[in-house]
């Protein structure tokens, strides 16, 4: 057994400070284990959000040594333990307390995106016939566990605070999953351009780098959506046709 020090943010919207906690660490431990140990031994009221502890629910997002991470999937042996490990809440969302932030904005954003609208079923029992090849493209996006780390790191939200005009990487992935679903009939391109601010993304790929599910957010979701917007709204031929049709 050895010990390590964790520098954890304590406080609420009114203010706070880092506090150091030293605790025993053992082989295989992850950051969330250390936080739980501190909570049980030294700080019963330490606020931390978590559920599955297996990288599947996306609840325990935080910034570990400045990097957006799931605490349950960050092993201590991947961090230098000869100096304090800094753990602080996500910066893009309002702080509730300690490591917990108010992520309700994300849930509101999702409601504004047109929901799935399938074509008529292919078979009398109400089912469809779809190729595996066609589902795989969408399945990548549907791996998303809604940890909101991509939203946390996106500078349009984090630095420019454009929460009113820009839905963020998570919801471009969500939109892409709907737009590329072969059964879907709804059209979200106009919303993407005018309401959801896809144009604000300047493809720095920060979101892709932090995604714990390794979804290629920028290349596979956002860029194709930008292309759809350009094709449908700014393509000269389409534009002309639209003028004729009124």
């Amino acid at each position: 057994m050895s010990s390590a020090t964790f520098r954890i943010w304590r406080g609420n919207a009114d203010g706070g400070a880092f506090e150091d906690y030293t605790t025993e660490v053992s082989e295989g431990m992850v950051v969330l284990d250390a936080v739980h140990q501190i909570q049980a031994e030294k700080a019963n009221d330490l606020a931390v959000r978590w559920n599955c502890k297996a990288g599947k629910c996306g609840s325990c997002s935080a910034e570990v040594n400045g990097n957006p991470k799931l605490m349950c999937m960050t092993r201590l042996n991947s961090l230098p333990l000869d100096q304090p490990v800094t753990i602080e809440p996500m910066q893009t969302f309002p702080l509730i307390r300690d490591l917990v932030t108010d992520v309700s904005w994300n849930y509101e954003v999702k409601k504004r995106i047109k929901q799935f609208a399938p074509r008529a079923p292919d078979a009398p029992d109400g089912s469809w016939r779809v190729e595996q090849y066609d589902v795989e493209r969408v399945q990548e996006f549907r791996k998303c566990i809604e940890c909101f780390l991509c939203q946390d790191v996106c500078h349009v939200l984090r630095d420019h605070r454009l929460h009113d005009k820009f839905i963020g990487p998570r919801y471009f992935v969500y939109t892409a999953a709907l737009e590329m679903q072969v059964l879907d009939t709804a059209d979200r391109v106009n919303d993407l351009a005018n309401e959801h601010g896809v144009g604000y993304c300047n493809i720095t790929k920060c979101c892709t780098k932090v995604c714990p599910e390794e979804i290629t957010i920028t290349d596979n979701a956002i860029i194709p959506l930008k292309e759809r917007v350009v094709d449908e709204m700014y393509d000269p031929l389409t534009k002309m046709l639209r003028m004729f049709r009124g």
């Binding site: 609420n12 909570q39 019963n44 009221d45 509730i96 300690d98 917990v100």
Partner: peptide
């Protein structure tokens, strides 16, 4: 339990 009622895991 320690602390107050805000997001208090101990409580």
């Amino acid at each position: 339990v320690q602390g107050n009622r805000e997001y208090n895991a101990g409580w």
